[in-house]
Amino acid sequence: MKLLFISVFLLSISSVQAASIYAGKSKAAVVCSQCHGVRTTSAEAPFPPLAGRDKEYLKMALRQYRDKTRLSEIMNNIAGSLTDKDINNIANYYSRQK
């Protein structure tokens, strides 16, 4: 069960900005918010919210999804192509959202 769609998409938008929150924002805004929202998840959807969560927790979760020590069909695919820098930026961005 490979979600080619997501991986291809992620590759095409991977960015190299230095400003970490902005880089985190651009990735989060395009990809992650599709399921997790920016500030709130949909009242109708079964996705955990990310806004305002502990930064270290988010980093850990993403690393676990990436190395598949935490299993989720969707998140393993999405995190699979994230670099350490991406993970830092995104965790930084979401942890600051209220």
Binding site: L3, L4, F5, I6, V30, V31, Q34, C35, I74
Partner: peptide
Amino acid sequence: SLIMTGSF
């Protein structure tokens, strides 16, 4: 896949 993830 598209229906699962939606279209970004």
